[in-house]
Computed example of a mutant assay.
Amino acid sequence: MKAGECSLEVHISVYTLDVPEDGGPINSSYYNANNNLKVITHGWISSDKTEWLQNIRDNYLQTHDYNVITVDWSEIAANPSYVWPALSTRYVGKRVAKLLDSIKKTYNVTGRNMHLIGHSLGAQVMGYAGMFSEQPISRVTGLDPARPLFEFPYMPSSCRLEKSDAEFVDIIHTCGGVYGYRMSHGHADFYPNGGRPAQPGCDGPRPMIQGCSHGKACEYYGESIVANRFTAYPCDSYKNFQEGKCKNGSTKMGDPASPESRGDYYLHTEDSQENEQNDENCN
């Protein structure tokens, strides 16, 4: 299957939009040019119907006056061979960039009103969308961006999500060194519970633990929209953070992250704190 033969749909609320092939105007009576735009997409073997994506969309619509678009590239992402969807993220990102450019032309809005959010391979899609957009994009959020074929083997910055793709790039690491980025590539990189598997609540055989941990970034982000409780601290290592050496300069992880945040940030989620307390009680 050739990239040009694959379809790409986007959904605004429950209304389907087609991406203009020629960069022409968007035809929608539901887009409010006075509201900021959130664009969300999924990763490998997934779709925009996946639960975490629907939760993020619904949390935004229930708590804010935003335009929310979900990008469905499941026709490509469903390929069981990881290599093809991974290589196709560039193509999908270009199509998303065309959509953003059409929105700009139709509603006279700028990239400063646009926030792109993607999980795993979807984070790479959004990085390409920011890179190919005709206008600087305000923010790209990578939810445990896919590592294989992007960070391992190590690819040039033009071939993976990194800080030049938007004015503010924030990354949440939850399966670092396995499915997700191990190193820091954003303006602000957040490492809940150290950023590696196993994340709290992820049990079972190693593949299950790693898959669960990979998805925790989406869960944390969705919760951050409605419960502003993920306080993170700048630190040079998780070890120093655990030893209580980093207690100043806090910021929030997730949706409320400050665009002024720079560097690596660490935190414990409440689940991990409860687990640590339970461990202490068992000693």
Rank of each mutant, 00 (worst) to 15 (best):
F150M: 13
Y238E: 03
G24Q: 02
C202T: 00
P234L: 09
Q242N: 11
N27G: 05
D236C: 03
A78H: 05
D203E: 12
S158D: 06
D48C: 08
N193L: 06
V178T: 14
R206G: 00
H187C: 11
T41D: 03
T106I: 01
H185C: 13
N36F: 07
F241P: 01
A188D: 02
Y60T: 01
C202R: 00
A217T: 09
H115A: 07
C235L: 12
Y154I: 14
C282R: 15
Y154L: 15
T110F: 06
G130K: 11
Y91V: 05
T251E: 05
Y179V: 05
S261M: 06
S13Q: 14
D271F: 09
W52Q: 05
S224M: 08
S29F: 07
G186V: 06
S7W: 09
N35L: 13
I76S: 01
N34R: 08
C6F: 08
G130R: 10
R147I: 03
L53S: 02
P153Q: 08
A257G: 04
D203W: 13
V96Y: 01
D22C: 02
S261Q: 04
Q135K: 10
D48H: 07
V178A: 12
N79W: 04
G177N: 03
Y154W: 12
P85R: 06
S102F: 05
G142Q: 09
T50Q: 11
Y179Q: 09
I209A: 00
H115T: 14
Q242I: 08
D72V: 01
T89C: 12
A188K: 00
Y107N: 01
D144L: 10
G204R: 05
D22P: 00
Y91M: 04
D264F: 00
I26M: 02
N27T: 14
A232G: 13
M126K: 09
A257Y: 06
H119I: 09
H11T: 14
A129D: 07
N34H: 03
T16K: 13
N240R: 14
R206H: 04
N248Q: 15
D264R: 11
L37I: 07
E280Q: 14
N59M: 07
T70F: 03
E167W: 02
D264T: 07
A232M: 10
D58H: 09
T251K: 00
N36S: 10
A227T: 13
E9A: 08
C202M: 02
R112T: 01
V39Y: 09
C235I: 10
S261T: 06
G4D: 07
V83Q: 11
L17E: 05
R182M: 14
L61E: 14
S28H: 03
H42N: 03
Q62V: 04
Y238T: 00
G244V: 08
D279W: 10
S157A: 14
I171R: 05
D72Q: 00
G180H: 09
E5G: 11
D279E: 13
N281Y: 12
Y107H: 04
A123L: 11
T106P: 00
A188V: 03
K104Q: 15
D236L: 11
L143E: 07
V19M: 04
K247R: 13
S213P: 05
D203S: 13
V39K: 12
Q242V: 11
K247V: 12
Y66A: 12
T41A: 04
P197R: 08
R182S: 14
E9C: 02
P145Q: 10
A166G: 13
T89D: 04
Y60E: 07
F150R: 12
H119K: 07
D165H: 04
S258L: 00
V169H: 08
